[in-house]
Simulated assay, not measured.
Amino acid sequence: MISLKNPSQIAKMREAGKILREVEDEVRLAIKPGVSTAELDILAEKLIRKHRAIPSSLHYEGYPCSICASINDEVVHGIPSDRRILKDGDIISVDCTLLLDGWQADSAFTAGVGTISEEAEKLIRVTEECFWKAARQCVAGNRLGDVGYAVQSLAEANGFAPIREFTGHGIGREMHEDPAVYNFGEPGRGMRLRKGMVLAVEPMIAAGDWHLSVDDDGWCARTVDHSLTAHYEHTLAINEEGLPELLTLPGFTWEE
């Protein structure tokens, strides 16, 4: 069932998104060779609680940490550990969700560690471009297939593959709500987007094959061919005034 949000509810999600942006900015600054993913997790939780918010990934369906920290061929749900030390040339995807006054915010980014390869730089750039192309489709009257096709077409035009086993999603009082937001699709197909829908749009893109395996911990998903992956996500609200509002990127305005 789709949960439409009214302006006052979106305002609360906007506040949650503002805090999450501040948290992720600080975590991004801490990414460097020699830092453990556990240190990033501790930092994120400290900052979230400083703002009197709750790290909603922590204990979610048994997940043990406040962020997901996925390195190189890991797509999502990499569990932070003091044994996972970032090295020069790695890329790391950080996915973080918080709860403020009963409302969720969800965002993710991929960053290079030290000096990274040209392929990794291109993958990160194209993944972010996939998000922006998809976000422009998130207007009332369009369909979910338009969003998925925007990601798929740009990724494949650059020789990359959108991940098919994980999706974006609706978000609100719950971290994951209807509808699923796929990173592939056919334009003009699927559910019609409506004012009041709030979505977490999150391209996950592989440099090689999109098929995945899950580690023995039951969480971390990685590409079967061990190709690099990148992830970029924002929470956005659909209105009737044009392009959507990015709740986890405060101050952003669209330029036509």
Rank of each mutant, 00 (worst) to 15 (best):
M1F: 11
S3C: 09
Q9E: 15
E15M: 10
G17N: 00
K18D: 05
V23K: 05
V27C: 04
L29S: 14
A30D: 03
K32N: 10
S36T: 15
I42L: 13
A44V: 04
E45S: 12
L47H: 04
K50G: 11
K50A: 13
I54A: 05
S56D: 12
S57F: 14
Y60H: 13
C65S: 15
C68P: 00
I71D: 11
G78C: 08
I79D: 07
R83C: 08
R83T: 13
I85V: 15
K87E: 15
K87Y: 09
G89I: 05
I92G: 11
D95K: 04
T97G: 13
L99A: 08
Q104L: 06
Q104I: 06
D106M: 00
F109E: 08
I116K: 12
S117T: 12
E119P: 01
E121P: 00
E121W: 06
L123D: 08
I124T: 02
A135W: 01
A140N: 03
G141W: 09
N142V: 04
N142E: 02
L144H: 06
L144R: 00
G145F: 07
E156K: 12
A157R: 14
G159V: 07
F160P: 04
P162A: 02
R164C: 00
G170Q: 01
I171A: 01
R173C: 07
H176T: 15
H176D: 08
E177R: 05
A180T: 14
G185R: 06
P187R: 15
G188Q: 03
R189D: 09
G190C: 11
M191W: 09
R194G: 09
K195C: 03
L199R: 01
I205V: 14
A206F: 05
G208F: 06
G208W: 07
H211G: 05
S213I: 12
S213Q: 13
D215S: 14
D215Q: 14
D217W: 04
G218P: 13
A221L: 11
T223R: 14
T223D: 06
L228V: 05
L228R: 05
A230V: 03
H231P: 02
E233N: 13
E233P: 00
H234M: 01
I238F: 00
G242S: 01
L243I: 03
L243A: 06
L243E: 05
T248M: 10
L249R: 11
T253P: 00
